[in-house]
Design a protein around this nucleic acid. Structure first.
Lengths: 133, 133
DNA sequence: GGTATAATAATAGTGATTCGCGTTACTGGT
DNA sequence: ACCAGTAACGCGAATCACTATTATTATACC
């Protein structure tokens, strides 16, 4: 008998989502935590993580999970990302990249392919100015 | 006067690279550490990390740095990877994916694009057998 | 309003990676 | 071969991102 847990509406999750939507910088959990604390000074970091997790499950946000530190995005429309290889920041790109069709792979090493993850790598304007190298 | 540091040849780094080349499983730093210790029982985990870092810098290896735990690959030929979304293991795929040309992007948000990172997501044979779900 | 329990705040814990530091051992010059 | 200079080492502690625990709070439903 597994009863399904109902999802309660909490002020904390609402604020987390609002603040995530208010920025276009794909913040990390900690960055978002700092923003949210301006409005809910007693919220804990664990709560931010838990609610980001729930928002991803419900499709209201998605995680860009690479490189040790997860970043989150409230824009669930299809688009690409560039990641700065120096500072790790992420920006949006219009979704002009060719669509890949994993189903066409004939050698899958026994894997069941369910999708792919693509991101561009580059150097952001700030880092370019700091050290054009 | 910044003198460039010369790279010394050490037994530890040689063994790390040999062992990395000896496996096809894209090991994590810790997995490689366990292998290397069979030959160099006193090597430290920090040394493995330090040398993997150097090998990546010199192009003799590359890191598949996503999802919390870095994995390393001594095969620097162009090829793709599949990552199991359940257990995190990685396998090689022949490089049949369409080449992307970042230079053709016209909106780069001010970034200097230097490449892209693509990996497929799937479920590995072991995990499929464990829970076909 | 009252009750069951999902969600919270606070905090301790975990696992991966990095850092600091005293020691070791390559390397290039004598 | 010896020596000075300094990468690189081994080790333990520190950091960082994230998860688990637990007592408390507050939401959904009656």
């Amino acid at each position: 008998m597994s009863r399904k847990p109902i999802r309660r509406k909490t002020r904390q999750r609402a604020v987390v989502l609002e603040e995530l939507r208010a920025v276009c910088s794909h913040p990390t959990a900690r960055e978002l935590y700092d923003r949210v604390r301006n409005r809910l000074p007693t919220i804990s970091l664990g709560t931010v993580y838990r609610n980001l997790e729930q928002l991803c499950e419900s499709g209201e946000a998605c995680r860009l999970a690479e490189g040790g530190q997860a970043r989150f995005d409230a824009d669930t429309h299809p688009h690409s990302h560039v990641r700065c290889v120096r500072c790790g920041c992420v920006a949006d790109l219009p979704d002009k990249t060719p669509k890949l069709h994993p189903g066409e792979l004939d050698e899958t090493a026994g894997f069941e392919i369910i999708g792919y993850r693509l991101e561009y790598l580059g150097v952001c304007p700030v880092c370019r100015k700091a050290e054009p190298a």
